[in-house]
């Protein structure tokens, strides 16, 4: 978008929306939308509180463990599926089913199997993220240029060498792409898990705020969450662009 020949930066329209929010809040249109400035003051006041720090720490813990399991399991299974046709044909239908299945329906099962705590939230997070990571890692291995593998063989590379020096690197752009989408899904998973098992983390905080009609608090926490999620996704997109240079010309 250009104004008077000057290029407006990408996300600059958010300022306009923020201003609109402030106006609506000031005009007292609805109780549910306090002015943005008020939300920021609230945010400033709660960001140091123990409740907030705990929620953030618990969420970060569940999120990072969930992502860790999803990435490890996802990349390994994905690469194996890409290399082994039988395994691929056995697992692919299920991966596709779970990729688009309403995984929220599984949360109650996790709750009865693993209890109303952290464990269930971590597994929910992993469940949201793992399928797309499998699928992309598999696709990454599948598209590896035959001549690269043949090159490795002709220069006498051992299977282990070929795996780490060729397969992993050649599939890396796709794997990273999968990890990026997986992590965005994990963010949603960890919040959905906390909402349904609402005794920990932000889930509990949301319950508390909405039960007490603390709209400023509610929006403040939402802003933090959205901001974090967006930063994570942009950071991963940036990483992905850094390896895209060789993804384009393989």
């Amino acid at each position: 978008m250009y104004i008077f020949g000057y290029r407006l930066p990408g996300m600059s329209s958010l300022v306009v929306w923020g201003f609109l929010w402030e106006m609506i809040g000031r005009a007292d249109v609805t109780f549910f939308v306090p002015p943005l400035s008020e939300v920021f003051t609230t945010l400033y006041s709660i960001i140091g509180t123990v409740a907030f720090k705990n929620a953030l720490a618990e969420t970060a813990y569940a999120f990072s463990l969930g992502v860790f399991f999803a990435v490890t399991i996802g990349v390994i299974i994905g690469i194996l599926m890409g290399k082994n046709r039988l395994l691929d044909e056995l697992l692919l239908p299920w991966v596709n089913v779970f990729l688009s299945a309403p995984l929220t329906a599984l949360v109650p099962v996790l709750m009865v199997l693993f209890g109303f705590g952290m464990k269930s939230i971590i597994i929910t997070t992993s469940l949201f993220a793992v399928w797309i990571i499998i699928l992309n890692s598999r696709a990454g291995v599948k598209q590896i240029n035959r001549s690269l593998v043949e090159m490795a063989n002709s220069f006498g590379a051992s299977p282990i060498d070929a795996f780490f020096k060729i397969y992993f690197w050649a599939a890396l752009p796709e794997i990273l792409g999968g990890v990026r989408i997986g992590i965005i899904r994990a963010v949603k998973g960890v919040i959905i898990g906390q909402l349904l098992i609402s005794i920990v983390g932000f889930g509990a905080l949301f319950e508390l705020y909405s039960a007490n009609f603390l709209m400023g608090h509610f929006w403040a926490v939402l802003l933090v969450l959205f901001g974090l999620a967006f930063s994570i996704s942009e950071f991963l997109a940036y990483l992905e662009r850094k390896v895209a240079y060789y993804a384009a010309k393989r």
Partner: peptide, 11 residues
């Protein structure tokens, strides 16, 4: 797209 919009449900 990036945000966990489910958090809006209580609201």
């Amino acid at each position: 797209q990036a945000a966990p919009l489910a958090a809006l449900i209580p609201l």
